[in-house]
Design a binder for these strands. Structure first.
Lengths: 154, 154
DNA sequence: TATTGTTATACTCTATAACTATA
DNA sequence: TATAGTTATAGAGTATAACAATA
C-alpha cells in the first residue's frame, strides 16, 4: 500500500531527536485525541472542555467552580464561561453551598445527565478509534502511567 | 503531612468518571509537562513550539515548512511565524530547495545549534522532574505506548 | 490543476488584574 | 487578610480563505 506524500515527509522527521521525546509524544497524542473527541462531541453541542465540566457535575462530588478549575487546570474565570453556557442550556445548575455562601456547587440537571450519557457514548467511540492500535492490557498500562504524570506525588 | 485545601478538593474529583478517562489524563499530563517545559525554555527565549522547530532544523532531515507543519500538527501559517522569529534571531535559515523551488528548507545555524544544545539540557531537566515518579522501565513503556498513539497505523 | 509559502482575518483560548461578597 | 466568583481585557494560539510562485 503506497504511503501519501505527507506520510513520507513525516516518516523522515520520525528519525529526529524529537521523536523520542516523551513531552513531544504527549503533545502529539493529546492533539490527536482532542481533535477526535471534539469532533465526536460536536454533534451534541459540546467540546472536550464543556463535556468534562458536565461529567463532573453528574458525579457525587458536588464540586465548586474552584474545584473544577483546579481539577481541569483551568483559570477560575474560564470555568465561569463554561458553567454559564451549560446553565443557559439547562444542563447544569449553580447551587449555593450551605457551608460557604461564597461558593457555587455545580450540579447537572436531568437533561444534563441525559446529554452526558449520549455524548459519553460518542466520546468513548472516538477514544476507541484513537486507541485501536493498543491492546487491552496496553491501555490499562497507559492509563496507570498517565495517572502518575497527571496527578504527581501521590 | 497535611494536604493543601486544593489537593483535598482535587482528590474528591479523582473518584469521578473522568479520572479513568485516557483522553482526560492525556490532556492533564500534557498540560503539566508543557507548563514545565515552557518554564524551563523561557530563560533561553524559547517555548515548546519554537524549541521543537529548532530541534528539527538541527537534524539531518532538512524539513520543508510543510513537513514541519504536518509533523508538529500546526497550520502552515503558524510555521511561517515560528520560522520568521527564529530566523530574525539568527537561529535558523530558510534555504531554497533545489528540487522544488516553491519550498523552503529550514536549517539551523551554528548559533541555533548551540542554543538547541543548552536549551535541550534545560528541557531534559524539566522532563526529568515531571517524570520523577516513574521508574526507568515505566518511562520506556510510556514512550512506546505514546508513540503508538502519536503516529497511528504503523 | 494542485501545492508551497505567505498574508490577512476572525475566532478561541489563556492569563492577569480588579472588584464583590463572603470567610 | 484571604478566598470564591465575576468581569474586563489583553495576549497567545488556532483556523480559514485568498493570493503569487511554482510544480
Amino acid at each position: 500500500m503506497p504511503k501519501s506524500a505527507d506520510a513520507v515527509a513525516t516518516s523522515v522527521l520520525r528519525a529526529s531527536a524529537l521523536a523520542d521525546d516523551v513531552s513531544f509524544l504527549l503533545a502529539r497524542a493529546n492533539a490527536i485525541a482532542l481533535a477526535a473527541g471534539n469532533a465526536a462531541l460536536a454533534e451534541h453541542g459540546l467540546k472536550a472542555r464543556s463535556y468534562s465540566v458536565l461529567v463532573l457535575a453528574c458525579g457525587e462530588a458536588r464540586p465548586s467552580q474552584r474545584d473544577l478549575a483546579e481539577f481541569l487546570r483551568l483559570d477560575p474565570s474560564q470555568v465561569v464561561s463554561l458553567v454559564d453556557e451549560l446553565q443557559s442550556r439547562g444542563l447544569v445548575e449553580r447551587q449555593p453551598d450551605p457551608a460557604d455562601r461564597r461558593a457555587n456547587v455545580v450540579v447537572a440537571t436531568d437533561a444534563g445527565r441525559r446529554l452526558a450519557a449520549t455524548a459519553g457514548e460518542a466520546a468513548r467511540g472516538a477514544e476507541e478509534r484513537v486507541h485501536a492500535d493498543l491492546a487491552s492490557d496496553d491501555r490499562e498500562t497507559l492509563t496507570r502511567l498517565l495517572r502518575t504524570l497527571a496527578f504527581p506525588s501521590d
